[in-house]
Structures are given as structure tokens and as C-alpha cells.
Design a protein around this nucleic acid. Structure first.
Lengths: 226, 226
DNA sequence: CGAATGATTGAAATTAGTCAAGCCTTGTGG
DNA sequence: CCACAAGGCTTGACTAATTTCAATCATTCG
């Protein structure tokens, strides 16, 4: 078993792409890798943040927890993504729970390094500002979706977005339908029913976790002004 | 009519509080003040951002617009607040509409200046990162509210938060109930009914736009685990 | 004063959630 | 290799929360 070249791994993360190999070596001293098994928690809602996380590979679920086991999945972070920056900058508790949906490798980066780097590298500061700005806009898009679209419309939007991301009419859910439903702020039952209904209308073809788009124009029309 | 000392005004905005008077003078060259009348639009959803805005005084509504006149109020920005930073950093369109709810003075700050300042002043970069982080966490709190709380609970939470902000049991809505309802993602009708119900239960006393908290413990309990 | 806007109220409709049962995989251990 | 347990998914019937529609009432402010 050979040691992983974590410095090399860091170099390949979008957020550190401007770093030289030497800088990655330096950064490494402030990093802690975490190998997570499926369903393992990385941190709980409420734990105070002293750094943030980069997802090397895998899928990390960020979720809000409510009494009686209810939860709301806010985001699924995948390869190359990061999370926890905002809590780090504010030195506040993480507002969400982070849990691995599958075997994942994430790297914890101590805030200490980031703060120093920002002080010395304005370009890096710009990158972090862009990362946070992206996250903010993504959340606003979610709020728009929750507030102004019906359950079926949200599902249609999701299918189209996934399809665009993979440049394919055929998408395979990397998530259980339970998690997807929570991400879309609906119940699994509603998701199931809505997919069936879309299937009956000939918009999509559903086979387990595979969804194929049959009538893209019609699907788009569902999201347009009435 | 005497010219307003905008440099002095800038100095008093939280986001520029670290600036020296000389720096504020310099900043001023990149600023454009806007006096807005009630209901005046500052920008439309979709306009490309080349800077951001600071609210000197007044109330600016940020809202998502949907077909058929529907809209969702995302945030109300008040004195000392700012908005549009994320769109500026991404050089993307504003995802929301900005409209004055009352006569307001806002100052537009060109991104050009901010970018230069970030390059030369790491402390300022930190400030901007904190501002964005705050906005992100505020949005997550909203998502939590929308997803995991009932309409009545959201109203109770709002009343308590307003009361805390003013350190008083008595709050006076600075918003029309229509705008407040949209902010809480409910309809005005539901807001009206819920307030009445809370009033009937002796939790609050409602008189037009004045709300007085009568039973704070009970109100808190509504937000706790069942 | 009177139009316009905002707020309230009631009744009906609708969406989505809840509860409960059953089904279908999938993986595991006998 | 089969059987069964477990989880994930689907389905149906019912319920509940909130919205919609419509009408009325109040307020404000030209």
C-alpha cells in the first residue's frame, strides 16, 4: 500500500488550481484527508467551523435537520466542489449536517492557511469570493424553485438540468429517490407519482434510476410562462 | 440646497468603516448615488452587474419575478446593508429585481474599484468575504424556514426576530403585509388568518401594523421540537 | 369625496403530505 | 442455491395545510 500523493491531489482541485506544486506542498501541512464510508457523518449541524472541506471524490450531502427525524437536503457536493467556507469565514457553527452518500474522499483545510493566503495572494481572495458568490446564486436559484414552481415543475427542471450537465437525454440518478426528493423539497411519494405522471404523458421514460427524456420541448414548456 | 457630503456618508457605511476619509474621497470617484422614490426600480432581474449597491437609508426589496405577476421577496435590505456583490464578482446578471419600498438613498459602487481594492487591501477582501458569508447563511436560514416550518411557525419566528432586533415587545411593521407575506413565502390571506389565530390564542395583540407580544414563552415553544 | 390600495373574511378548490400496505430488488447467510 | 431480511420504491386512500377566488371593508391620500 503506497501513500497517496495528496499534494498532487490538491493541485487538481479547482479551488487550488492556481497553486504551484510547491505551494500545494505547503498547503498540505494545513490539510487533513478524510476517507468516509457510505452514510458516515463528516460533521453535525452546529459544530463550530475552523476550516472548510474540498471533495476529491464522492458525494457529500449537506442537510438541515428538524425535530422528529425530518431533514431537508440543501446541497449535494461532488468531485471538485467545496463547502463550509462561509461558516469558516464567520467562525460560526456549520448550519448544516455533512454526510457522505457513498464512499468519499474529502480534504479538510484549516482556516489558518486560507486567511494567511488571502492576506498574501489577492488572486486567491478573488477565487474565494467567486466560490461564495456561486454558492449564493445557486441558493437563490433554489429559493426561486421552491417558491415559484410546483413539485412537478421542479422535477422537470431538475431532469433538464441533469441532462444538460451530462449532455445526454439519458440520465442516471446518483442519489436515492429519497435524497433527491428532499433536495427538491418534496416527499418521495410525490416524486414517484410525478415521475409516473410525466411518464404517462410521454415526456420521459423511467426505469428505476434511469430517466430518459422523450419530449424535451414539452418539458421545457412546463417551465415557461403560462 | 447644499451638496451632500457623500464621502462622509460612505465612511459611515459598515462595509467601508475601515476606510480613512482620504480613501472615502477616492472611493467616491467610483460611486453613483441614487435617490429612489417609493416603488421605483433600481434594477431588473437579468440586468448585468458591474458593481454593487449600498443602502444609506430606506428599504430595498429584492425579489424574484415569475410569470403572471407573481413574485417572491427574497430579502429586504435596510440602512447600512448592501446587495449585488455576488453578481458583481461573477460578472453575471442580477438574479433578482431591486425596488425601493420607500424613498431611499442607495450608492452604486463600481466593481472596478472593489477589484482594485481587494488586490491591495487583504483586510478589505476579508470584509467582503464576511459579507458574502453572512448573506449565504441568511439564505440558508430562509431555506430552513421554508422547508421545515409551517406558515404559522414562520410568522412566529419573524415576530420574535423582529422583537429581538428592536429589543421590544412591540413591533411595527415597516412593510405592507403583502410584502411581508411574500418574504415569508405565504399569501397575504394566510398571513392575516394566522395573525388572527395567534391573536385569539393570546400570543400577540395585533393592531394594524403594530404587533405586541403577549406570551413570549408560548411563542418560542411553537418553534421547538414537538 | 372618491378612487385606489391594502387588509380581512368566507367558501371552495387544490396541492402536497401522511399513513399504511405491498412490491420489488439486492445482498447475505444458512 | 435458495430464502429471507432490509431497504428502497410504489401505490392507494385519506387528510391537512395553504392557496385561490370573490366579496367586503378600511384607510389613505390626492
Amino acid at each position: 500500500m503506497r501513500a497517496i500523493d495528496y499534494a498532487g491531489v490538491l493541485k487538481h482541485q479547482p479551488i487550488f488550481s492556481q497553486f504551484t506544486p510547491a505551494e500545494c506542498e505547503e498547503l498540505l501541512a494545513y490539510c487533513t484527508p478524510h476517507n468516509l464510508v457510505k452514510n458516515e457523518n463528516l460533521f453535525q449541524q452546529g459544530e463550530t467551523a475552523t476550516g472548510f472541506y474540498v471533495v476529491v471524490h464522492g458525494r457529500i450531502k449537506l442537510a438541515l435537520q428538524a425535530p422528529r427525524g425530518a431533514e431537508k437536503v440543501v446541497e449535494i457536493v461532488t468531485d471538485g466542489g467545496s463547502f463550509g467556507e462561509a461558516a469558516m469565514f464567520l467562525a460560526k457553527p456549520y448550519p448544516v449536517l455533512a454526510q457522505a452518500l457513498c464512499e468519499s474522499l474529502v480534504i479538510f483545510v484549516r482556516g489558518e492557511f486560507i486567511f494567511a493566503r488571502i492576506a498574501s495572494d489577492p488572486q486567491f481572495a478573488r477565487s474565494m469570493l467567486c466560490v461564495l458568490s456561486h454558492q449564493l446564486h445557486a441558493l437563490i436559484a433554489d429559493v426561486e424553485s421552491y417558491s415559484l414552481k410546483s413539485a412537478t415543475e421542479r422535477i422537470a427542471a431538475f431532469v433538464l438540468k441533469e441532462s444538460a450537465r451530462r449532455s445526454s437525454d439519458q440520465i442516471t440518478l446518483a442519489l436515492s429517490k429519497y435524497v433527491l426528493a428532499s433536495r427538491l423539497s418534496i416527499t418521495p411519494e410525490t416524486l414517484s407519482r410525478a415521475l409516473h405522471q410525466m411518464s404517462n404523458r410521454g415526456l420521459v421514460e423511467v426505469d428505476g434510476r434511469k430517466i430518459r427524456i422523450l419530449d424535451r420541448p414539452q418539458l421545457h414548456e412546463m417551465l415557461q410562462p403560462a
